[in-house]
């Protein structure tokens, strides 16, 4: 085999190996197929307090990830957080309009995510619709504050 051809083959192998590595990184290490941003539809949920929810946090239903948080805004009129949820394509007509949206924390110190509890309605949410039933994030300081307050009340009642 001549020298020029060897170089061609080696360069070809090098490029192929590089692209295989890139493919591996996007398909196996991260999840390209599941993180498409352009597809699906968006719904809106309003919360009094979102805790430390971040853009791109998962949106799950029955523990299955069906989308991501695509934007978080603040509504100065109602003093609420407006969270836009992008639901991936394939989950059309899967979210009843009386669905309950909660902000959960994964594990004790984990990331926060949006969990959807399906309701019983036969009408489903479409692009741009709003979830009206929401529950805010649990903020650790508030829970501790409430706990201390109730303890103090107990103590006062006992005296």
């Amino acid at each position: 085999m001549n020298h020029g051809r060897t170089i061609e083959i080696l360069v070809g192998a090098f490029m192929a190996a590089g692209f295989v590595a890139l493919f591996f990184l996007s398909m196996k290490v991260s999840n390209l197929s599941a993180s498409g941003t352009g597809s699906g539809y968006e719904i809106e949920a309003r919360f009094d307090n979102i805790g430390s929810l971040k853009v791109r946090a998962p949106v799950t239903m029955a523990g299955v990830r069906i989308g991501r948080v695509s934007a978080i805004n603040f509504d100065a009129q109602t003093f609420e957080a407006v969270v836009i949820l992008r639901i991936e394509s394939g989950y059309e007509d899967a979210i009843p309009d009386d669905t309950f949206a909660k902000i959960f924390t994964a594990g004790l110190l984990g990331e926060q995510y949006v969990g959807l509890d399906a309701g019983g309605s036969q009408n489903f949410l479409k692009e741009g619709d709003k979830i009206s039933l929401t529950q805010s994030a649990l903020v650790l300081e508030e829970i501790i504050g409430q706990f201390l307050f109730s303890k103090a009340e107990e103590g006062a009642a006992r005296e």
Binding site: L22, L25, S26, K28, V29, S30, N31, L32, A34, S35, T37, R56, P58, R65
Partner: peptide, 19 residues
């Protein structure tokens, strides 16, 4: 090992930025 990785590593934010 793989599922945690896939859930937390983002193709655009992580892989593409690395590229």
């Amino acid at each position: 090992f793989w599922s945690q990785m896939q859930a937390k590593i983002d193709t655009y934010d992580d892989v593409l930025n690395g590229v």
